[in-house]
Amino acid sequence: MHDRLQTAKSIDEVIQHHDFFLDKCLKECLLLLPELIKNVEKLKSLCLQYAAATQWLISSSINIPKLDEQSDGSVGSGKSKQWKLKNPSQAQKAVTRNSAVTDSILKFEREFNAEVQSLRPILSSSSQAQPFLTHLAQWILGVGNEP
Rank of each mutant, 00 (worst) to 15 (best):
Met1Tyr: 06
Met1Ser: 10
Asp3Cys: 08
Asp3Trp: 02
Ala8Cys: 07
Lys9Trp: 02
Ser10Thr: 14
Ile11Tyr: 13
Asp12Met: 11
Asp12Asn: 04
Asp12Lys: 08
Glu13Ile: 10
Val14Gln: 05
Val14Asn: 01
Phe20Ile: 03
Phe20Ala: 15
Leu22Ile: 15
Asp23Met: 10
Lys24His: 11
Cys25Ser: 06
Cys25Asn: 07
Cys25Trp: 12
Lys27Asn: 11
Cys29Tyr: 08
Leu30Val: 02
Leu30Ser: 01
Leu31Ser: 10
Leu32Glu: 10
Leu33Gly: 02
Leu33Cys: 09
Leu36Ile: 10
Ile37Phe: 07
Val40Glu: 06
Glu41Ser: 15
Lys42Ala: 12
Ser45Cys: 12
Cys47Gly: 15
Ala53Leu: 11
Ala53Gln: 08
Ala53His: 03
Thr54Phe: 05
Thr54Lys: 04
Gln55Tyr: 09
Gln55Ser: 14
Trp56Tyr: 09
Leu57Tyr: 05
Leu57Ala: 11
Ser59Glu: 07
Ser60Asn: 14
Ser61Asn: 05
Ile62Val: 15
Ile62Met: 13
Ile64Gly: 01
Lys66Ile: 06
Leu67Gln: 01
Glu69Ile: 14
Glu69Leu: 10
Glu69Cys: 13
Glu69Tyr: 03
Gln70Ser: 15
Gln70His: 10
Asp72Trp: 14
Gly73Gln: 02
Ser74Lys: 04
Gly76Cys: 07
Gly76Ser: 03
Lys79Val: 15
Lys81Tyr: 04
Lys81Leu: 05
Gln82Ala: 14
Gln82Gly: 08
Trp83Met: 14
Lys84Trp: 07
Leu85Thr: 00
Lys86Leu: 04
Gln90His: 13
Ala91Arg: 09
Lys93Leu: 12
Ala94Trp: 06
Ala94Gly: 03
Ala94Glu: 04
Val95Ala: 12
Val95Tyr: 04
Val95Cys: 02
Asp103Leu: 14
Ile105Met: 12
Leu106Met: 03
Leu106Gln: 09
Phe108Val: 01
Glu109Asn: 12
Glu109His: 10
Glu111Trp: 02
Glu111Asn: 08
Glu111His: 02
Asn113His: 13
Ala114Val: 09
Ala114Gly: 09
Ala114Pro: 03
Val116Pro: 00
Val116Gln: 00
Ser118Leu: 07
Ser118Asn: 08
Ser118Cys: 04
Arg120Tyr: 05
Arg120Asp: 07
Pro121Ile: 01
Pro121Gln: 13
Ile122Lys: 03
Ile122Asp: 01
Ile122Tyr: 01
Leu123Ala: 00
Ser124Leu: 07
Ser125Phe: 05
Ser127Asn: 12
Ser127Glu: 01
Gln128Thr: 10
Gln130Cys: 12
Gln130Asp: 03
Gln130Phe: 08
Gln130Ala: 02
Pro131Lys: 06
Phe132Glu: 11
Leu133Lys: 00
His135Phe: 08
Ala137Gly: 11
Ala137Glu: 01
Gln138Cys: 03
Trp139Gly: 00
Gly142Tyr: 00
Gly142Ser: 02
Val143Ala: 02
Gly144Pro: 02
Gly144Met: 06
Asn145Val: 10
Asn145Glu: 09
Asn145Asp: 13
Glu146Ala: 08
Pro147Arg: 11
Pro147His: 12
